[in-house]
Computed example of a mutant assay.
Amino acid sequence: MSFLFLSLLSVMENQTFSADILSMEGLKVSPGASVPAFVLLLLIYVFIMVSNLGLVLLICTEPSLHQPMYLLFCNMSINDAFGATAVIPRLLSDVFTPTPQRYIRFYECVLQAFASHFHAATSHAVLMIMAFDRYVAICNPLRYASIMTSRMVVRLSAGAWVAAFVSVAILLGLTVRLTRCRRLISNPFCDNASLFKLSCQNLLINHIYGLGSAVVILGSSLGSVTLTYLRIAIMCFSSRNKGLSSKALQTCASHLAVYVIMLVASFTPMIMHRNPQWADGGKVASVLFHVVPPALNPIIYGLNCKELRQKIGSVFYTSKVK
């Protein structure tokens, strides 16, 4: 009798393990390339955290930078640091772990998927607000101070984060409700698609909402940014003050560069995933969205914004003198 009870208990434990513990494919790195891959990822992650959080600290502690544009930079930098932290530390921990031994708990996978999608949605929302900020500053400068007040910046920023949170919560909520018949996450990190592929149920609702939310986010982002900067360009080229127009276009160029980099990093894995010969490359490219924009954004902002360049230079000069 006791033997039968122990056997049943063992079966139940194995079922629990199968249900709650998932196999993670991760990055496919050969043993010889493990150390270089680890060092490179670690250096990139350290740079992302130091540059983005350093930019936030500089803006928060420097009263002259308490302006809408720089406060929006803080939003982007915080989001970039968050997005990189959601993905890179897990990749680092898996580099020296053999693929068959890479496991992740289901709730940890859901949290990582939530963080990665939340980072993506917030990136689009914040860049839309930054485009609106530049539009008001260039096309309606006399009303800029009355429109882009501190309260307005806080409201727009909070709206961006809340909207991203709600849309991603619904997205993952529809996935978590599904029963699972598989255990393998065939991706370098967890995302919504890799999670609902674990189920054998009807995924029509998941596909409809996932595609619909992606169309709304990308459509509104592309449409608003394109329209905004098109009107800014028309305004600048028709202006008689060429010096002011050149400065305005230079400022907008940095924002457009950040936006284009983000789009390329997000569309590249989608294109590669749909070509079987590039499938493995698409899995690696999916990491780029959480690595390339967070690493390049603070460089682009720092090089193109004169005020930031001066403040960063003064910080280094002061530390050197001390």
Rank of each mutant, 00 (worst) to 15 (best):
M1C: 09
L6Y: 00
L9I: 00
V11R: 00
N14A: 08
F17H: 01
I21W: 03
I21S: 05
E25L: 03
K28G: 02
G32T: 12
G32Y: 02
A37L: 13
F47N: 10
I48P: 02
V56I: 10
L57A: 14
S64H: 04
L65C: 11
H66V: 09
L72N: 08
L72S: 02
C74Q: 14
N75G: 15
I78C: 12
A81M: 10
A86R: 01
R90H: 13
V95P: 06
T99L: 10
I104G: 01
Y107E: 11
V110C: 06
L111G: 13
A115E: 15
S116K: 05
H117Q: 15
H124V: 15
L127A: 05
M130G: 11
M130I: 15
A131D: 07
D133T: 13
A137W: 06
I138M: 14
C139V: 13
P141V: 08
R143K: 14
I147V: 15
M152C: 11
R155P: 02
A160R: 05
V162P: 08
A164Y: 07
S167E: 05
V168C: 07
A169S: 10
I170F: 15
T175C: 08
V176T: 06
L184D: 03
I185S: 00
S186T: 01
N192S: 14
A193L: 04
S194M: 00
L195W: 01
L198E: 00
L198C: 01
N202I: 08
L204G: 10
I208Y: 11
V216L: 06
L218Y: 06
G219R: 01
S221R: 04
Y229T: 09
L230A: 10
M235E: 15
C236R: 06
R240E: 12
R240W: 09
R240C: 13
K242D: 12
L244D: 14
A248V: 01
T251E: 15
H255P: 08
A257Q: 14
V258H: 01
Y259D: 15
V260D: 04
I261Y: 03
M262P: 00
A265Q: 07
A265N: 07
F267A: 08
P276F: 06
W278H: 04
K283E: 00
L288R: 02
F289D: 03
L296W: 07
N297L: 08
P298N: 11
Y301I: 12
Y301T: 07
L303D: 02
L308N: 02
L308W: 07
Q310H: 06
Y317A: 15
K322I: 12
